Simulated scan of single mutants.
Amino acid sequence: MASQHVRVESTTTADPATVYALLRDGSGWPEFTPLGSYELVSAGTGEPTELGEIRIFHTGRFHAREQIVEMIENRRLSYVLLAGMPLRGYRADVDLEPTDSGTLIRWHSTFDPKTFGTGWLYRTQLQGFIQKTADGLAARATEVARDR
């Protein structure tokens, strides 16, 4: 089975530190993304404190259990899917790049489907979902920066 890739981009007038602060706080994601709710399963044990955090996002009948596996301050947050979707090796890297007018958000996910022939379906669904998530993050970051 071929690995699947999802790449989306969004921009905000907020600086990378503002965007990164929103990314770090999983409890706030349901406020600006299509995610339904957040549940902390176990706190991170690394530095920064969220590194290793295990969380569940509940959205309708889906319950995605994820773990934060990489954090580079104001530049990157990466997580892996532990359970909740019929995918193997799912990893997402959210990279923040400063621009003259704010921040470019690049969200890249890779995975292998568990069932042969379903990769295109999950890629298509995730493409739209992740684009809405990135756009929501960008919009929220713009609001936070404007309200300062």
Rank of each mutant, 00 (worst) to 15 (best):
D93A: 06
D93Q: 06
D93H: 07
D93G: 02
V94C: 07
V94N: 13
V94H: 01
V94E: 01
V94D: 05
D95N: 11
D95R: 06
D95W: 03
D95S: 09
D95E: 12
L96Q: 02
L96C: 05
E97S: 12
E97G: 02
E97P: 00
P98L: 04
P98T: 01
T99Q: 09
D100G: 13
D100W: 00
D100N: 11
S101E: 10
S101F: 02
S101Q: 13
G102P: 05
G102K: 00
G102F: 02
G102L: 05
T103Y: 04
T103D: 10
T103K: 06
T103Q: 11
L104K: 11
L104E: 10
I105R: 01
I105K: 06
I105V: 14
I105Q: 08
I105M: 11
R106E: 10
R106F: 01
R106M: 08
R106G: 06
R106N: 08
R106W: 01
W107V: 09
W107F: 12
W107D: 11
W107M: 09
H108L: 11
H108N: 12
H108A: 12
H108P: 00
S109D: 04
S109Q: 07
T110D: 09
T110G: 11
F111W: 05
F111I: 10
F111T: 09
D112L: 13
D112P: 00
D112E: 15
D112A: 13
D112T: 14
P113H: 04
P113E: 15
P113L: 09
P113W: 01
K114G: 00
K114Q: 14
K114H: 05
T115A: 15
F116C: 02
F116E: 12
F116P: 13
G117P: 06
G117M: 13
T118A: 12
T118L: 15
T118C: 06
T118M: 15
G119I: 08
G119R: 01
W120S: 14
W120D: 08
L121T: 09
L121G: 08
L121I: 15
L121V: 14
L121A: 15
Y122P: 03
Y122C: 07
R123L: 09
R123G: 09
R123W: 05
R123V: 10
Q125R: 09
Q125V: 15
L126H: 00
L126F: 08
L126N: 00
Q127K: 14
Q127G: 10
G128Q: 07
G128L: 07
G128V: 00
G128A: 10
G128W: 09
F129N: 05
Q131Y: 08
K132S: 15
K132L: 13
A134Y: 01
A134N: 00
D135H: 00
D135T: 05
D135C: 05
D135W: 03
D135K: 03
D135F: 03
G136T: 01
